[in-house]
Design a protein around this nucleic acid. Structure first.
Lengths: 219, 219
DNA sequence: TAAATTATGTTGAAATTTCAACAAAACGGA
DNA sequence: TCCGTTTTGTTGAAATTTCAACATAATTTA
């Protein structure tokens, strides 16, 4: 567990808590970890939400699949990111999404009730934990709004450019790698893959971007 | 202010707090109210987020408009609903959305910092307030996911049917009124208005729904 | 009540997306 | 390195959406 302290320190849930505090709290919170191989379903749609997940290593995708089999990708999470926190807070009996391991990933699970209700040990910094969780929830709302901003655009071209512009801002750079392959990017933008590929080709011809696989450069 | 106690009691932010407690807290929180006429902009895109808003009467819409002038409606809020809570929690310097009064509406504003940081008076139930705010944030995340579920559908017909099915579930009834006119519904579903009207006509002919203005009945 | 305004429905043409099928390129394991 | 697999690119046809323009209905205002 101690190996992951560096990750936890960067995790917004533990913001402003000392190493010692984090370690003590993990006990109170009854945190446990698990490893999942690539493509393994960590949490599946329809199951009850009880635990908050923290990505300790690797990366995961939040997805949903409708009855026609169309997959929609809601987001990609990396080291230090949390998932399922909103559903766990609400004690939802049926998760509306699945969480899939993108690669071999280690995940920490924390029972949400242990965060919301301070323990008898009276951890002095439990309050900070609650405060942090609130910030995480607020950030998630903003993240989804961003996804709505992207997918509300009417054309594949605009969706892609809106997404890439946001990526560029995040990276403070015009060139960057995205965490999706073509099919995944299409499922995130909610468009057809072949149409997306065609659009990327056009943008390349128009001199608007360079691109090689998941590397993009805006010109 | 006292007239609105009935609304505040139903407001999730004050869940599980007694009337007296609510009244006491409003003082500590330095809550203030304001009235806005129909179509008035309560908060505008780009301005800093400082206050949480509570709809005391009337209703408001959360909207965003891109540089081409395309309006996107993120949601419709009624009596007792909160808005801007995520942005205020994050102390965002530039709100990504606007909030517009749908009709003459009275709004209560609370400085988010007063909720997050317990006051010197040591209100005994301040903790409950924080806990409630967390649930509100979690619920908002779920609300946005629902909007994404709707707009991720590829055709106008599917978007509309997904939306109406969710409405029917919420109302526990196959017939209900929606809070949107045609243009607003189109802006919420992120589709063209005339195309939406055409699709409604088709669904009517196919015997799948009845509809008169904002009243719908699924068959 | 009539007139003006706003909301909704209808239509056809143009643009775009999806779909299916296949080609080309990149990758991974033996 | 070779081969099989996966990913990406390309294409044309069919379906759908958008757009513009106008007709009709409902609501509001004078």
């Amino acid at each position: 567990m101690r190996n992951f302290l560096n990750v936890l320190k960067k995790c917004p849930l533990f913001f402003d808590l000392s190493d010692d505090n984090i370690i003590t709290m993990l006990g109170c919170l009854k945190a446990r970890t698990d490893i999942f191989d690539k493509n393994y379903t960590i949490l599946s749609e329809g199951s009850p939400a009880k635990y908050i997940g923290i990505v300790l290593s690797g990366s995961v995708q939040i997805t949903r699949t409708d009855y026609y089999g169309n997959r929609s990708i809601l987001g990609n999470l990396c080291e230090g990111d949390l998932f399922s926190e909103a559903f766990a807070c609400m004690q939802m009996t049926s998760m509306p999404v699945s969480v899939i391991a993108n690669e071999r990933s280690e995940i920490m699970f924390i029972d949400c009730n242990h965060i919301l209700h301070t323990c008898q040990n009276g951890c002095p910094h439990h309050q900070q934990l609650i405060y942090n969780l609130m910030k995480v929830l607020a950030l998630k709302t903003v993240m989804f709004q961003q996804k709505i901003e992207i997918t509300s655009k009417r054309s594949t071209r605009e969706k892609l450019l809106t997404y890439l512009t946001i990526c560029a801002k995040k990276n403070n750079k015009n060139s960057f790698k995205i965490p999706f392959n073509r099919q995944e990017l299409a499922d995130y933008l909610e468009v057809d893959r072949s149409g997306l590929s065609a659009e990327i080709s056009k943008l390349r011809k128009d001199g608007i971007l360079e691109c090689k696989r998941n590397y993009f450069k805006l010109l």
